[in-house]
Design a protein around this nucleic acid. Sequence first.
DNA 1: CGGACTCTTGATTCGGTTCAAATATAGTGG
DNA 2: CCACTATATTTGAACCGAATCAAGAGTCCG
Lengths: 252, 252
Amino acid sequence: MSNPQVIQRSASLQPMKTSCANCSMHQLCLPMGLDNADMDRLDQIIGRRRRVARGESLYRMDDPFSSLYAIRLGHFKTYQLNPAGEQQITGFQMAGELMGMDAISSDKHHCNVAALEDSEVCEIPFHRLEELFGVIPTLLRHFHRIMSQEITREQNAMLLLGNMRAEQRFAAFLVNLSSRYAARGYSSTSFQLRMSREDIGNYLGLTIESISRLVSRFRKLGWLGVDKREIELLDPERLKALAAGAETCPMT
Amino acid sequence: MSNPQVIQRSASLQPMKTSCANCSMHQLCLPMGLDNADMDRLDQIIGRRRRVARGESLYRMDDPFSSLYAIRLGHFKTYQLNPAGEQQITGFQMAGELMGMDAISSDKHHCNVAALEDSEVCEIPFHRLEELFGVIPTLLRHFHRIMSQEITREQNAMLLLGNMRAEQRFAAFLVNLSSRYAARGYSSTSFQLRMSREDIGNYLGLTIESISRLVSRFRKLGWLGVDKREIELLDPERLKALAAGAETCPMT
DNA sequence: CGGACTCTTGATTCGGTTCAAATATAGTGG
DNA sequence: CCACTATATTTGAACCGAATCAAGAGTCCG
């Protein structure tokens, strides 16, 4: 019998099977640190790889919870709706990040998730993942780290919303994106914003006009190059200092 | 050989052993839903029951992580320090709640924890807890729910800080305390604030003066009875409506 | 093109902060 | 117990940062 793996490797023209092993995010995502055998086990429980078109919802508040979602490709925003129907964006997610963990406690989703661009996610049925936890301790340990990271991320957002002035918030936002792109092997100084000014403002607890003014200000100071949604951090150190509160920002 | 459990039960004058089984919080805390045998297993890994005097730190940012802490008795605040040394309180914790989960991801604590009154915690060595996860699936499932709940809690705090006006925030804060006391079998309308006005303001992203004015306003409206830190919700429904944004609050 | 968004910029307003001062409360030691 | 001090809280007045209101310009896309 021929070895299917060898066949696949030689037949370079046929599309690779979508699997954790050949996903560029497997070093950041749930399968981090797993050996090939365990990664295969994880692959086997993954439901479908699902496409989500820009603007579409992956799930909504109060939807019954059954799966977590790992982002293969693209960007998402998660947001809550208050009783008046206004949204508060609680985060922007990119490839390799896991969504839906807030739903575990009550078996229904607590936020909405919408794609910021055409994207792809891996559906991970949670009950099957729980079965794997008993078999692959490494997976469980990494899952705990991911959940813990999510808690830390949100605590930082609270610090931002509760404590920082507008220019600090925006600088912190840019620096945060920068480091996340760096972790994915992309440029830390040059990237595209996938979200609108309105979304940025909403996330940062500011209005769209404030964001627009901040963009202009940072541009005039020579700290930022901006062309529509294309961003270049021209003075990352100063932006970091500003985010840290160690630097102030002239008004004009 | 005599059965020590029977002896303990009959000798009512000697103090009960501190254990999960005889802790009033075991229905809310980590051992929720465990049978007696499993609760004993959990008991055996719990390090010490540690007292923390009012104002004392349980742990600080950057301390190495080794244990989670469950509150047996008392109240705590968790807070972050920004690089300038200002604090942002990220939560107030009460009996039955678990602290330290944000430290799992990086093996060091990301926030400071201080006791708001003389308190007691159970130290839960995390590595030993991980061992138990393999033996008691119920415990693992509940642990995931607790972490998930923490994520949800913080998302709600983001909604509060990013979206709500001062009077909404304060109403939401009171309603939140109210429901947590109710869940513990205490009065939902009458309780003592364990934290200072300053702490409340810090948590809500407001100043101490704003809190003081809100207290006065709610008192004059007859929605709230206040005597120092003793609080009575005189019109809980209206406070809930205000927190939900369905009700406005006259200025004078 | 036209029409719908999205973004920018200016003028004005306002909610909440800051500054300031008075009062109340809790702790501490004589 | 009381005086003394440090700390916490309340209240008023002035100020300021960001929101709101308003108008225009740029951009996307059929």
